[in-house]
Deep mutational scan, measured.
Amino acid sequence: TTYKLILNGKTLKGETTTEAVDAETAERVFKEYAKKNGVDGEWTYDDATKTFTSTE
């Protein structure tokens, strides 16, 4: 399943996707990605669109 991440950081904005077996796995991948890029925001998830959003 393809999951999408929308980053709305103070210094980094953008989108990326990952293939994962479930939302929990995708969330771990995306949170590590955000951390590596210095984004520490509030997380939301929309199951209908398989989209995570992190907003600082």
Rank of each mutant, 00 (worst) to 15 (best):
T44V: 09
L12M: 14
T11R: 11
T11S: 12
L5V: 03
E15V: 13
K50F: 08
V21H: 12
T53E: 05
K4F: 13
A23H: 10
E56Q: 07
T44C: 09
T16D: 03
T49N: 07
D46L: 03
A26L: 01
E27D: 05
T55S: 09
K10E: 08
R28C: 07
T18N: 02
V29S: 05
T53R: 07
N8S: 08
N8W: 13
E15S: 12
T16V: 15
D40S: 10
K13N: 09
T55V: 09
D47W: 08
D40V: 13
K50D: 02
A20Y: 02
F30I: 00
A34C: 12
A48W: 07
V21Y: 12
T51L: 03
A48H: 10
K4C: 08
G9P: 02
E19F: 15
T25A: 13
E24D: 10
V39R: 02
R28N: 07
A23Y: 15
V29K: 08
E19N: 13
K31S: 04
K35E: 10
A48K: 12
G14A: 15
Y33A: 02
Y33F: 12
T18I: 15
W43I: 05
K13Q: 12
A48I: 11
V21I: 14
E19G: 04
D40H: 13
E15Y: 13
Y3K: 03
T49F: 04
S54K: 03
G14R: 14
Y45W: 02
K31Y: 05
E19K: 12
E24Y: 09
T18E: 04
L7K: 00
T49Y: 04
W43S: 00
G14I: 15
L12H: 14
A23N: 06
T18G: 02
E24P: 09
V29E: 08
A23R: 14
K35W: 10
Y33R: 02
E42A: 11
T51P: 00
I6W: 04
Y45Q: 00
F52K: 00
T17N: 05
T55W: 08
E19S: 10
Y33K: 01
A20R: 02
N8M: 12
D22G: 04
T1L: 09
V39L: 09
V29L: 11
E19I: 15
T11N: 14
F52R: 00
T53C: 07
S54Y: 14
T2E: 10
D22H: 03
F52E: 00
W43Y: 02
V39Y: 12
Y33Q: 02
T25R: 06
F52G: 00
D22L: 04
A23E: 07
Y33G: 01
I6H: 05
T44H: 11
G38I: 02
G9V: 04
A26D: 00
T11Q: 11
E32Q: 09
A48D: 11
T51K: 02
G41P: 05
L5R: 00
E32R: 06
K31N: 04
Y45V: 00
D46G: 01
Y33H: 04
D40W: 14
N8H: 10
K31M: 08
Y45S: 00
W43M: 07
E27G: 08
L7C: 08
N37E: 09
T17M: 09
T25P: 01
A26R: 01
E15Q: 10
K10I: 14
D47F: 08
T2I: 14
I6A: 03
K4D: 02
S54L: 15
T53D: 01
K50Y: 07
V21T: 11
T51E: 03
T17P: 01
A20W: 02
E19W: 15
K36Q: 13
T25S: 13
G38P: 01
E15I: 13
V29M: 10
E42N: 11
F30H: 00
F30K: 01
T44D: 08
T51Q: 03
L5I: 03
T11K: 12
G14Q: 13
E32P: 01
L12S: 09
K31V: 06
E32F: 05
T11I: 11
K10P: 11
T17R: 07
T1V: 12
L7D: 01
L12V: 14
D40R: 10
E56F: 08
D22N: 11
T51A: 03
E24H: 10
N37A: 14
A48Y: 10
V29W: 14
K35A: 13
F52M: 01
K31G: 02
Y3C: 03
K4R: 13
K13A: 09
K10T: 11
T44K: 09
D46H: 06
G14C: 15
A34M: 07
E19Q: 14
K13E: 05
W43F: 10
T44F: 11
E27A: 11
E27Q: 11
G38Q: 06
G38N: 09
E42T: 14
Y33V: 05
A20I: 02
D40K: 10
A48R: 11
V21L: 13
G41T: 05
V29C: 09
T55N: 09
E19A: 08
F52P: 00
A20L: 02
T53M: 09
A26H: 00
G14S: 14
F30W: 01
F30C: 00
K50R: 12
K10C: 14
G9T: 09
T17G: 03
F30N: 01
K31W: 05
G41R: 02
G14F: 15
T18M: 13
V21Q: 13
T11C: 15
A26M: 01
F30R: 00
E42M: 12
D46W: 03
G9I: 04
T2S: 08
D40Y: 13
E24F: 10
T49G: 04
Y33E: 03
T16L: 15
K31Q: 07
Y3Q: 03
G14E: 13
T44E: 10
T17E: 10
I6V: 11
G38W: 05
T49A: 07
A23L: 12
A34T: 06
L7R: 00
V39F: 15
R28T: 08
Y45H: 00
G38S: 05
I6M: 05
T55G: 04
I6L: 07
A20K: 02
K13W: 11
E24L: 11
E32D: 11
Y33C: 05
G41S: 05
E56V: 08
Y45P: 00
T1I: 14
G9F: 15
G41V: 05
S54Q: 07
T18L: 14
T55R: 06
L5K: 01
V29G: 03
V39A: 05
Y3W: 06
D22Y: 03
D22M: 03
T1M: 11
Y45F: 06
G41Y: 06
S54P: 03
T44I: 08
G14W: 15
E32S: 06
K10Q: 11
T16W: 15
K13I: 10
K50H: 11
E19R: 13
W43N: 01
T51H: 01
K10D: 08
E42V: 14
T2N: 08
R28W: 07
N37H: 15
T51S: 04
K36G: 06
T2V: 14
T49K: 06
T25L: 06
K4A: 05
T53K: 06
E27N: 05
E19V: 15
T53W: 09
G9Y: 11
Y33L: 05
V39S: 04
W43Q: 01
A23Q: 12
K31L: 07
Y45T: 00
N8D: 11
T25Q: 12
E15A: 08
T18A: 09
R28L: 10
F30G: 00
Y45K: 01
K31C: 07
T44L: 07
N8T: 08
F52N: 00
T49S: 10
E56R: 04
T44Y: 09
W43H: 01
T25D: 09
E24G: 09
T1R: 10
A48C: 09
D40Q: 13
T53V: 09
D47P: 14
F52H: 01
N37T: 08
V39E: 04
K31F: 06
T25Y: 07
L7Q: 01
D46A: 03
S54T: 15
L5S: 02
T44Q: 10
T16G: 04
